[in-house]
Simulated assay, not measured.
Amino acid sequence: MLAVAYSTLSEKAISDYIAENYHIKPIEVNYLIRGINDTYVVKDDHSKYVFRVYRSDWRSHEDEVAFELELLIYLKNQGIPVSYPIAKIDGHHINTLYVPEGKRFGVLFSYADGEETPIDNENISLLFGKAVAELHQKTTNFTSNKQRSELNLEFLIDHPLEVIQKAMVHRSEDFTFIEEVAIKLKNRIQELEPKGLDWGICHGDLHGNQNISFCNDLTYTHYDFDICGYGWRAYDIAEFRLARQYHTNGDKELLERLWSAFLEGYTSIRELSQNDLAAIPVFVWIRELWLMGLCFQLRHIDGGIDTGDDFIDEKIDIFKKVQL
């Protein structure tokens, strides 16, 4: 018997499991997407749901999942529209699933009605800014005793560098360049932090084109809090800025209009200090570094075809543009 790094649960297995453990009788289960985790859409006679199966090497401790679920229940109770966990017959939310690679955790979530909507105009960018600010505002008093990685410099820079170094042993000089950039980014945040950077609950993946569903009337639902945790709010916001840089395809005027609208929406709900604003461009680069590490971290699942030397060359070119 050979070792397994990653297994995919069958739709029938998920359907049977849900029927046995929930007050739900699935009539259809469809495997939707493989990302950091596996996502299935579940339908019964009345509603749709999402069943997420966390990867065993990504969320290996139940506390990590429990923190996310506690946050979602808290947000729901605070009136924030989120995709929230559905309790099992026994009242618990987390399933321990035994698979060839060991065990994986599974959670059933409410379905986020609507659809992913491109944030390509100022109106929806302003609305998204308000939605992010409300998310940050409503989590001010959230607490949990569950263990969860903070979105700190160890998580955002040190760990990704370790992963990147292992993937670039054949390009040691180029890795040294990336490491030097990372040190500059780290030092810049350490310079800004004593002046005060807003710290609190972050979604962790607020790029805007995903992880929020909009209905036709522009009501919305946040979803996928898998990377949530305590961190710098400027980092949480920086992901939106980075995503706009990619999605505006070099149209700098559009980028700045969307960014201004987002900030207008955000600051209409809660304040952003000048120090936080100064940190956002730094966190944009840090997010790029973290994503590079994540891509390498997923190679044993997704294969290495998209993270070869062309990928490294592209990232080197990006980091050559860093200005602090």
Rank of each mutant, 00 (worst) to 15 (best):
A5W: 09
T8P: 06
K12Q: 13
I18V: 13
A19Y: 02
E20S: 12
P26Y: 07
Y31R: 14
R34W: 08
G35V: 02
S47V: 04
Y49M: 04
V53F: 00
S60F: 11
E62Q: 13
D63S: 15
D63T: 06
E64Q: 13
E70K: 04
L71M: 01
L75Q: 09
N77S: 11
G79S: 12
Y84W: 02
H93P: 00
I94H: 10
T96D: 06
L97P: 00
G114V: 06
F128Q: 02
K130F: 01
K130G: 03
E134M: 13
L135P: 00
K138V: 08
T140Y: 15
Q147D: 10
L151P: 08
D158S: 15
H159N: 11
L161C: 13
I164M: 05
F177G: 05
F177H: 01
I178W: 00
K184F: 08
E191Q: 15
E191I: 10
L192S: 08
L192A: 07
H203R: 09
G204M: 03
D205G: 07
L206T: 14
Q210N: 15
T219S: 15
D226K: 10
Y230R: 13
N275L: 03
N275S: 12
D276C: 05
D276M: 05
I280Q: 06
F283R: 03
E288K: 05
M292Y: 06
F296D: 11
R299P: 00
I301N: 10
I301T: 12
D302P: 01
D306F: 12
K315T: 01
I318C: 08
F319W: 06
Q323K: 13
